[in-house]
Simulated scan of single mutants.
Amino acid sequence: MSLLNKVLDFFFPEFCEVCNHHLKPQEVFVCRRCLNTLPFLKLYCQRCGSLVSESLLEKGIDRIEYCSYCSQKNFYFDRVFALFQYKEPVSEWLVRIKFAQDFRLAFALGKLIRGFFSFLLSDVDMILPVPLSIERLRERGFNQSALLAWGFLGRKPFSEAIFRVKCTKPQTELTGKERWENVKGAFLAKDWIKEKKVLLIDDVMTTGATVNEAAKALKMKGAKEVYVLVVARNQLL
Protein backbone atom coordinates (compact mmCIF):
# COMPACT_ATOMS: atom_id res chain seq x y z
CA MET A 1 0.00 0.00 0.00
CA SER A 2 1.38 3.42 -0.95
CA LEU A 3 2.01 6.11 1.63
CA LEU A 4 -0.82 8.19 0.17
CA ASN A 5 -3.27 5.31 0.47
CA LYS A 6 -2.20 4.71 4.07
CA VAL A 7 -2.83 8.37 4.89
CA LEU A 8 -6.24 8.33 3.20
CA ASP A 9 -7.19 5.10 4.92
CA PHE A 10 -6.18 6.57 8.27
CA PHE A 11 -8.29 9.70 7.99
CA PHE A 12 -11.14 8.35 5.92
CA PRO A 13 -12.04 4.83 7.08
CA GLU A 14 -13.87 2.82 4.40
CA PHE A 15 -15.94 0.67 6.75
CA CYS A 16 -18.83 1.43 9.08
CA GLU A 17 -17.67 1.73 12.68
CA VAL A 18 -20.76 -0.19 13.87
CA CYS A 19 -21.44 -2.99 11.37
CA ASN A 20 -18.11 -2.97 9.48
CA HIS A 21 -19.87 -2.85 6.11
CA HIS A 22 -18.26 -0.90 3.31
CA LEU A 23 -19.25 2.76 3.35
CA LYS A 24 -20.81 4.42 0.34
CA PRO A 25 -19.15 7.61 -0.97
CA GLN A 26 -21.68 9.91 0.75
CA GLU A 27 -21.49 8.11 4.09
CA VAL A 28 -19.18 9.27 6.87
CA PHE A 29 -17.91 7.08 9.69
CA VAL A 30 -21.08 4.96 9.93
CA CYS A 31 -23.48 3.70 7.28
CA ARG A 32 -26.91 5.27 6.96
CA ARG A 33 -28.65 2.27 8.53
CA CYS A 34 -26.42 2.29 11.63
CA LEU A 35 -26.55 6.07 11.86
CA ASN A 36 -30.27 5.83 12.58
CA THR A 37 -29.59 3.56 15.57
CA LEU A 38 -27.21 5.94 17.36
CA PRO A 39 -28.35 7.67 20.59
CA PHE A 40 -29.11 11.10 19.15
CA LEU A 41 -30.24 13.84 21.48
CA LYS A 42 -33.83 14.55 20.54
CA LEU A 43 -34.50 17.26 23.10
CA TYR A 44 -32.14 19.25 25.31
CA CYS A 45 -31.84 22.74 26.74
CA GLN A 46 -30.43 25.06 24.07
CA ARG A 47 -28.88 27.29 26.72
CA CYS A 48 -26.94 24.78 28.82
CA GLY A 49 -27.32 21.45 27.04
CA SER A 50 -29.05 19.68 29.93
CA LEU A 51 -31.01 16.60 28.95
CA VAL A 52 -34.78 17.05 28.94
CA SER A 53 -37.42 14.34 29.09
CA GLU A 54 -38.27 13.23 25.57
CA SER A 55 -41.87 12.76 26.72
CA LEU A 56 -42.27 16.50 26.11
CA LEU A 57 -42.01 15.78 22.40
CA GLU A 58 -45.33 13.96 22.62
CA LYS A 59 -46.86 17.18 23.95
CA GLY A 60 -45.59 19.15 20.97
CA ILE A 61 -42.62 20.74 22.76
CA ASP A 62 -39.59 20.38 20.48
CA ARG A 63 -37.39 23.19 21.78
CA ILE A 64 -36.26 24.18 25.28
CA GLU A 65 -34.32 27.46 25.53
CA TYR A 66 -33.96 27.69 29.31
CA CYS A 67 -34.28 25.08 32.05
CA SER A 68 -34.16 24.78 35.85
CA TYR A 69 -30.43 23.99 35.74
CA CYS A 70 -29.80 27.30 33.94
CA SER A 71 -31.38 29.18 36.84
CA GLN A 72 -28.96 27.56 39.28
CA LYS A 73 -25.75 28.43 37.44
CA ASN A 74 -24.03 31.49 36.07
CA PHE A 75 -23.13 30.31 32.59
CA TYR A 76 -20.64 32.31 30.55
CA PHE A 77 -21.24 30.43 27.31
CA ASP A 78 -24.24 31.50 25.26
CA ARG A 79 -25.47 28.25 23.79
CA VAL A 80 -24.68 24.54 23.65
CA PHE A 81 -24.82 22.27 20.62
CA ALA A 82 -24.72 18.53 21.29
CA LEU A 83 -25.32 15.59 18.98
CA PHE A 84 -25.55 12.44 21.10
CA GLN A 85 -26.45 11.17 24.52
CA TYR A 86 -23.47 9.70 26.35
CA LYS A 87 -24.51 6.11 25.69
CA GLU A 88 -23.02 3.19 23.77
CA PRO A 89 -21.60 3.05 21.22
CA VAL A 90 -20.79 6.78 21.43
CA SER A 91 -19.52 6.57 25.02
CA GLU A 92 -17.28 3.65 24.05
CA TRP A 93 -15.90 5.61 21.09
CA LEU A 94 -14.97 8.56 23.30
CA VAL A 95 -13.25 6.27 25.79
CA ARG A 96 -11.28 4.70 22.94
CA ILE A 97 -10.18 8.09 21.72
CA LYS A 98 -9.01 9.25 25.14
CA PHE A 99 -7.44 6.09 26.52
CA ALA A 100 -6.62 3.94 23.47
CA GLN A 101 -5.30 6.87 21.44
CA ASP A 102 -7.57 6.13 18.49
CA PHE A 103 -6.73 9.24 16.47
CA ARG A 104 -8.51 8.05 13.35
CA LEU A 105 -11.71 7.59 15.31
CA ALA A 106 -11.48 11.13 16.71
CA PHE A 107 -10.94 12.65 13.28
CA ALA A 108 -13.79 10.64 11.73
CA LEU A 109 -16.17 11.50 14.57
CA GLY A 110 -15.36 15.18 14.17
CA LYS A 111 -16.12 14.87 10.47
CA LEU A 112 -19.45 13.21 11.27
CA ILE A 113 -20.40 16.07 13.61
CA ARG A 114 -19.63 18.56 10.87
CA GLY A 115 -22.42 17.03 8.79
CA PHE A 116 -24.94 18.12 11.44
CA PHE A 117 -23.45 21.44 12.55
CA SER A 118 -21.70 22.76 9.43
CA PHE A 119 -23.63 26.03 9.74
CA LEU A 120 -21.44 26.91 12.71
CA LEU A 121 -18.42 27.21 10.43
CA SER A 122 -19.79 30.45 9.01
CA ASP A 123 -21.55 31.64 12.18
CA VAL A 124 -18.42 32.07 14.31
CA ASP A 125 -15.10 33.86 13.94
CA MET A 126 -12.97 31.25 15.63
CA ILE A 127 -13.20 27.54 16.50
CA LEU A 128 -11.10 26.37 19.46
CA PRO A 129 -10.67 23.00 21.15
CA VAL A 130 -10.86 23.05 24.94
CA PRO A 131 -7.16 22.92 25.89
CA LEU A 132 -5.36 20.52 28.19
CA SER A 133 -2.73 21.61 30.68
CA ILE A 134 0.88 21.20 29.59
CA GLU A 135 1.33 18.47 32.20
CA ARG A 136 -1.72 16.50 31.01
CA LEU A 137 -0.77 16.98 27.37
CA ARG A 138 2.71 15.60 28.03
CA GLU A 139 1.24 12.68 29.93
CA ARG A 140 -1.35 11.78 27.31
CA GLY A 141 0.53 12.95 24.23
CA PHE A 142 -2.49 14.50 22.52
CA ASN A 143 -5.65 16.51 23.12
CA GLN A 144 -8.76 14.58 22.08
CA SER A 145 -10.75 17.81 21.71
CA ALA A 146 -8.16 19.13 19.26
CA LEU A 147 -8.45 15.94 17.19
CA LEU A 148 -12.24 16.26 17.11
CA ALA A 149 -11.92 19.92 16.10
CA TRP A 150 -9.46 18.92 13.36
CA GLY A 151 -12.01 16.51 11.91
CA PHE A 152 -14.78 19.09 12.24
CA LEU A 153 -12.77 21.81 10.49
CA GLY A 154 -11.00 19.59 8.00
CA ARG A 155 -7.72 21.21 9.03
CA LYS A 156 -5.61 21.66 12.11
CA PRO A 157 -7.46 23.95 14.55
CA PHE A 158 -5.99 27.16 15.86
CA SER A 159 -5.15 26.70 19.52
CA GLU A 160 -3.23 29.82 20.56
CA ALA A 161 -6.21 31.84 21.80
CA ILE A 162 -6.81 30.05 25.10
CA PHE A 163 -4.56 28.08 27.43
CA ARG A 164 -5.04 25.84 30.42
CA VAL A 165 -2.81 27.35 33.07
CA LYS A 166 -3.74 25.03 35.92
CA CYS A 167 -3.40 21.25 36.02
CA THR A 168 -6.60 20.01 37.61
CA LYS A 169 -7.79 16.63 38.79
CA PRO A 170 -9.72 14.56 36.22
CA GLN A 171 -13.36 15.67 36.41
CA THR A 172 -14.60 12.06 36.27
CA GLU A 173 -13.16 11.46 39.74
CA LEU A 174 -15.17 14.28 41.34
CA THR A 175 -18.71 15.03 42.44
CA GLY A 176 -20.77 17.68 40.69
CA LYS A 177 -19.94 20.39 43.24
CA GLU A 178 -16.26 19.44 43.28
CA ARG A 179 -16.07 19.77 39.51
CA TRP A 180 -16.97 23.46 39.63
CA GLU A 181 -14.33 24.15 42.29
CA ASN A 182 -11.73 22.02 40.51
CA VAL A 183 -11.60 24.11 37.32
CA LYS A 184 -11.78 27.59 38.82
CA GLY A 185 -9.12 29.79 37.25
CA ALA A 186 -7.91 26.96 35.03
CA PHE A 187 -7.95 28.93 31.75
CA LEU A 188 -6.43 32.10 30.36
CA ALA A 189 -7.37 33.69 27.04
CA LYS A 190 -5.47 36.12 24.81
CA ASP A 191 -6.45 39.78 24.52
CA TRP A 192 -7.09 39.62 20.78
CA ILE A 193 -10.13 37.42 21.35
CA LYS A 194 -12.03 40.68 21.94
CA GLU A 195 -15.28 41.04 19.94
CA LYS A 196 -14.88 37.54 18.46
CA LYS A 197 -17.64 34.95 18.26
CA VAL A 198 -16.01 31.74 19.46
CA LEU A 199 -16.98 28.08 19.24
CA LEU A 200 -15.44 25.77 21.85
CA ILE A 201 -15.25 22.07 20.93
CA ASP A 202 -15.05 19.28 23.52
CA ASP A 203 -15.81 15.56 23.63
CA VAL A 204 -18.39 15.22 26.40
CA MET A 205 -20.25 17.59 28.71
CA THR A 206 -21.71 16.61 32.08
CA THR A 207 -22.05 19.51 34.54
CA GLY A 208 -20.64 22.05 32.08
CA ALA A 209 -18.06 23.24 34.60
CA THR A 210 -15.03 22.91 32.31
CA VAL A 211 -16.47 24.60 29.23
CA ASN A 212 -18.04 27.27 31.42
CA GLU A 213 -14.68 28.16 32.96
CA ALA A 214 -13.11 28.26 29.49
CA ALA A 215 -15.95 30.49 28.29
CA LYS A 216 -15.43 32.73 31.31
CA ALA A 217 -11.77 33.23 30.38
CA LEU A 218 -12.82 34.16 26.83
CA LYS A 219 -15.54 36.55 28.00
CA MET A 220 -13.14 38.24 30.43
CA LYS A 221 -10.97 39.10 27.43
CA GLY A 222 -13.93 40.55 25.58
CA ALA A 223 -15.24 37.67 23.47
CA LYS A 224 -18.58 38.72 22.01
CA GLU A 225 -20.27 35.31 22.16
CA VAL A 226 -19.12 31.83 23.13
CA TYR A 227 -20.82 28.69 21.87
CA VAL A 228 -20.06 25.13 22.92
CA LEU A 229 -20.15 22.08 20.65
CA VAL A 230 -19.79 18.61 22.17
CA VAL A 231 -20.06 15.12 20.77
CA ALA A 232 -22.15 13.90 23.69
CA ARG A 233 -24.12 15.22 26.65
CA ASN A 234 -24.06 13.15 29.81
CA GLN A 235 -26.64 13.05 32.59
CA LEU A 236 -26.08 15.59 35.35
CA LEU A 237 -24.50 14.19 38.51
Rank of each mutant, 00 (worst) to 15 (best):
F116T: 06
V95L: 12
F84V: 08
D62Q: 12
S55R: 12
S91P: 02
P131H: 10
S68Q: 13
F119E: 14
K98Y: 05
S91L: 04
S71M: 01
N143Y: 04
E65I: 14
N143G: 12
F75E: 13
D123M: 13
Q101T: 07
D125Y: 10
A82C: 08
F81Q: 05
I134P: 00
V90F: 02
M126G: 00
F107Y: 15
E58P: 00
Y66S: 09
K59S: 14
R140N: 05
V95N: 05
F81I: 05
V95S: 08
G60M: 11
S55L: 14
E135D: 11
N143M: 01
F75M: 15
V52G: 00
D78S: 09
K111L: 12
L128S: 08
F81L: 02
V95G: 01
D123C: 08
S91E: 11
R140Y: 05
F116V: 05
Q144M: 09
R136I: 04
R104K: 12
F107K: 05
P129F: 10
S53R: 10
Q144V: 11
F142A: 05
Q101I: 01
I61Q: 06
A146V: 03
I134K: 14
L94S: 04
F117E: 02
S118K: 15
A82N: 03
S122A: 13
P131Y: 11
S71I: 00
E139V: 04
L57R: 15
G115D: 07
K59N: 06
C70Q: 09
I113K: 06
F107C: 01
I61K: 14
A106W: 07
K98F: 07
W93V: 05
S133W: 07
S68N: 08
R96Y: 06
L128Y: 04
V124Q: 11
V95R: 14
L121V: 08
L128H: 08
A82H: 02
E92R: 13
F81K: 03
R79V: 02
S145Q: 10
Y69R: 14
D62L: 09
R140K: 14
L94Y: 03
F119A: 07
F77E: 05
F119T: 12
F142T: 03
L147C: 02
I113P: 00
N143Q: 05
L128G: 07
G110C: 09
V130D: 06
F81D: 05
D102I: 03
I134L: 12
R114T: 10
E135W: 01
C67W: 11
E92Y: 10
R79N: 03
A82E: 04
Q85G: 08
V52P: 01
G60A: 10
P89T: 04
L94M: 08
R79F: 00
F116Y: 15
C67E: 13
K87G: 04
A108Y: 10
R104V: 00
K111E: 10
L105F: 01
F103P: 01
L148E: 12
V90D: 02
R104I: 00
E88G: 00
S55Q: 13
A106H: 07
G151E: 01
L121A: 04
W93C: 04
I127M: 07
A108F: 09
